[in-house]
Design a binder for these strands. Structure first.
Length: 522
DNA sequence: ATGTGC
């Protein structure tokens, strides 16, 4: 373990620019009071450092670079922050690391929610045995049918085949206000009972009412940034780019009694075909998030408010202020869009399967976010839990699961890994209280996009997928999204399991992948 | 992540 070359504890120095990291520059924070307890590590309080909980094996801790750790410390020291969790998939992000949890009873932090408000995972299970997708021709037809309905790529909206679900301005306004309400689901051809399979199927305004959201939306619609609101609504049912994807899977339930029992509660069947989706709030969420960043940064400048650690990405608003209220309303509007976007994608994917395999049925297993702030009870008092690339993980018996299908099991946790090693469905264990009921959100990047393009070989990436018989809509798989650009998924999961946060219920093994190929041919 | 650099 090498000593960091800079002092990541400083709360005055601005963070270094992320672009200057060199290959092999893999420092590990070795600051005061760092201890390892089993496989979990804590940065203990010192005179200057409040505690940060780090969940990761020794190998995983080697993946945390200087900037990531500095962002964690900066976030921990920011006003009103009472808890900061670093998960094994952590890497540097906007303000706080992707793969962190920030808790505050008094402040809201837009950066530690993230640029893509309510970026989430969803899993659709089909009543199909695995061998139904053995035939490569069938898989090619499925890829085509899905891509005709749910496009990938920036700026892309609905395809003509989905025009029966056209979103006019009135419906657009309704869905960002109501989320997956019964009326919205009916209008878009989404099974209304899927709302019960959502972590949250709708989001209300800052005061707990929909009226507050409605007033905020009218204000926003009068601004220049929102002149293309109707166009943004046309993106409903699309994936976008970057790390977003759709993936056809085969479910492999874990070979133990607990996994079998929980899988049954989840409705997961061993050997069934399923479809995993990763996307968020697209252009609409982006306008809201980036608008809030700029707005708050301007206020900090104008009023001369000191930035946490000098980092503009860590601007915040005290709860109860107009700024906090407006942010919470905008987050809810973006979150409602993301919710309906995911459910519509699942409805369109099911429709695509039915086009290729007539009569097939499908149901949503779960929809859960990893980029959202939720008001939860932490240490016996209400607080905003900001999960930035982190997934809620509430075990059996948790009070907030009362009345849901998962009260006695814990809810499904959907974790994308990579097409080669698979993805995972997990369930929280009682130990998750130590991480503010959170786990990782996936594997986490280990190579930056530029770095990946420089060091990874295109034909190796494509050959590896081919040798695993995994098809894709991409002629060449985006190299900055290759499995090797991400951390070792098994080591990440081992960190979570050995720390007592969650247990594995099932693996999802990829049969074909749908990604944004528009930048793959550079 | 993104009306993907403005």
């Amino acid at each position: 373990m090498s000593t960091s070359s800079s002092n990541p504890v400083s709360n005055t120095a601005p963070p270094k620019a992320p672009a200057r990291r060199q290959s092999g520059d893999r420092h590990v924070y070795n600051g005061p009071g760092m201890i390892a307890t089993g496989e979990a590590t804590a940065l203990l309080p010192t005179e200057t450092t409040p505690p940060i909980k780090v969940f990761g094996t020794a190998a995983i801790r080697e993946t945390f670079d200087d900037l990531c750790l500095q962002q964690a410390v900066n976030s921990r020291l920011a006003p009103g922050v009472t808890d900061l969790i670093l998960n094994p998939d952590a890497h540097c992000g906007y303000g706080a690391p992707v793969g962190s949890v920030l808790v505050s009873p008094t402040h809201i932090y837009p950066g530690p929610v993230g640029v893509d408000i309510k970026c989430s995972m969803s899993l659709l299970q089909l009543d199909l045995p695995a061998d139904a997708v053995d035939d490569r021709k069938v898989r090619r037809e499925l890829i085509s049918a899905i891509c005709r309905r749910t496009p990938t790529g920036a700026g892309k909206g609905q395809r003509s085949v989905a025009q029966s679900r056209h979103v006019n301005r009135t419906l657009g306004k309704q869905l960002v206000l109501e989320g997956a309400s019964k009326d919205v689901c009916m209008a878009l051809g989404i099974p209304p009972n899927w709302a019960f399979r959502c972590e949250d199927s709708f989001h209300v305004g800052h005061d707990g009412t929909a009226t507050a959201l409605e007033a905020r939306l009218e204000t926003l619609l009068a601004t220049r940034e929102m002149t293309n609101f109707s166009e943004k609504m046309q993106q409903l049912g699309s994936y976008g780019g970057g790390n977003h994807f759709g993936e056809c899977e085969v479910v492999e339930v874990g070979d133990n009694e607990r996994a079998r029992s929980v899988a049954e509660t989840f409705g997961l069947h061993d050997g069934n075909v399923a479809f995993l989706s990763h996307c968020g709030s697209r252009g609409f969420g982006h306008i809201l998030a980036s608008g809030q960043f700029k707005h708050l940064q301007t206020k900090f400048d104008r009023w001369g408010i000191p930035l946490p650690a000098g980092d503009r990405q860590l601007v915040y608003a005290p709860l109860g202020s107009d700024e906090a209220n407006n942010y919470l309303d905008d987050m809810s509007l973006g979150a409602n869009f993301a919710t309906v976007n995911h459910l519509l994608i699942n409805a369109l994917v099911l429709e695509a399967f039915q086009e290729v395999i007539p009569g097939v049925k499908g149901d949503l297993v779960y929809f859960i976010s990893h980029n959202i702030a939720r008001r939860e009870i932490v240490n016996d008092r209400p607080a905003w839990v900001h999960r930035k690339g982190a997934t809620r993980a509430m075990p059996a018996g948790h009070h907030s699961l009362e009345g849901t299908p998962f009260a006695n099991s814990g809810h499904p946790i959907l974790l994308p890994g990579n097409p080669r090693d698979g993805s995972a469905v997990m369930v929280a264990d009682p130990g998750a209280e130590a991480s503010c009921f959170s786990v990782n959100h996936g594997a986490g990047r280990v190579l930056g996009r530029r770095h990946a393009k420089r060091v990874l070989d295109q034909s190796t990436v494509d050959t590896e997928l081919e040798s695993n018989d995994i098809l894709s809509n991409c002629r060449r798989y985006p190299i900055d999204e290759a499995p090797a650009a991400y951390k070792d998924f098994n080591e990440v999961l081992h960190s979570v399991k050995s720390a007592g946060l969650a247990s594995e219920v099932a693996r999802l093994k990829a049969r074909f992948v749908i990604k944004d190929a528009s930048k793959a041919d550079d």
